[in-house]
Simulated scan of single mutants.
Amino acid sequence: MSGVDPDALARVHHAFIRPMLDTGRMPTRERAADELNMSLGELDDALAALAGIHGVVLDPHDGEPWVMHPFSATPTATWVEHGDRGWWAPCPWCAFGIAGLKQGKATIHARLGGEHEPVVVHVQDGRVLETDLVVHFAVPPRDAWNNVHRFCASVLLFRDRDAVAAWCARHGVAEGGTLSVRQAWELGRDWYARHADPDWRKWSAVQAATIFERTGLSGPFWHIPPADDPF
């Protein structure tokens, strides 16, 4: 986006992401403005610009950060546990991103297919222990920001590919893309690896496509068309 200072947006992004990662709580706009020595109006302008490049989802009522991937400031169906801390994640992709940022041992709590059966995934020593699970994406990632909440809600864990097919038939959802839980871990780890960095930048479309290819995600469903804007 022309006219937007990427270094300034990175500082605003970091002022929210770092405390969230360290404490499990999203700071208020007032607190972030004080930390950045900005007026609330200046911060709100920066947050609006950050939302414009999909770096944050703002609450439409009060303008507070609602989702700053891989974190959600409000409850979701996916919970990441790490020591005495915990975070809500918008989806398993984000949950693996949080586990990658924290490193060490993490436990992800979710429900298979977003239904009644709980599932627990452990990440330890840089690998996922429950290797038989899969993750299904109902919406192509290139279309995520058409409705990011719907996109995140439809990224779900399943026992296997047969369970994905049965779920799609049951709910009238077209089968999308299914990857192994190991691939989902690698995708989350690599995608969010720099999200807590002070000099964070959104991935370009080319960078995003490279991460997908490196994770073994290829074919029309995973295709990310070239673009000038951040992905």
Rank of each mutant, 00 (worst) to 15 (best):
E30D: 14
S72Y: 01
S72F: 07
L47V: 04
L9F: 09
L40Y: 03
T28R: 07
A144W: 06
D59Q: 10
L133Q: 05
V139Y: 03
G83N: 06
A144D: 01
T74L: 07
A8P: 02
R25K: 12
H13F: 05
H136Y: 11
R25I: 13
G41F: 11
P6C: 12
P60V: 12
G41V: 11
A110E: 06
R150W: 13
T23V: 05
L9I: 04
A51H: 00
V123Q: 00
D5F: 06
G52D: 02
G126T: 10
A99Y: 03
D5A: 10
R150L: 15
S39Q: 07
P92C: 05
G41T: 03
G55D: 00
H136I: 04
F137P: 13
K102W: 15
L58H: 04
V135W: 06
A48E: 15
E30C: 04
H61C: 05
V4G: 00
D84W: 04
G86A: 07
H116K: 13
K105H: 14
R18M: 07
L112Y: 12
N146C: 10
A73P: 07
V134T: 04
H14D: 07
A110D: 14
G41H: 07
E42M: 01
A8G: 03
A106S: 13
P70N: 04
A77I: 05
R25H: 13
G104M: 10
M68V: 02
A144P: 09
D125F: 05
A110L: 08
L36W: 05
E35G: 09
W66F: 06
D22L: 13
A106W: 04
L21D: 04
H82Q: 12
V139C: 00
M38V: 00
D143Y: 06
F96M: 12
Q103F: 00
A8Q: 15
G113V: 02
G114L: 02
G113C: 05
G24C: 01
P19K: 09
A73T: 09
G114Y: 03
A77Q: 11
A99H: 04
N37D: 15
G41A: 03
P65S: 10
P6F: 05
E64T: 12
W93P: 05
P6I: 03
M20A: 05
W66Y: 09
F16M: 01
R142F: 02
P19C: 10
C94S: 13
P70G: 03
W93H: 15
K102M: 13
E35F: 10
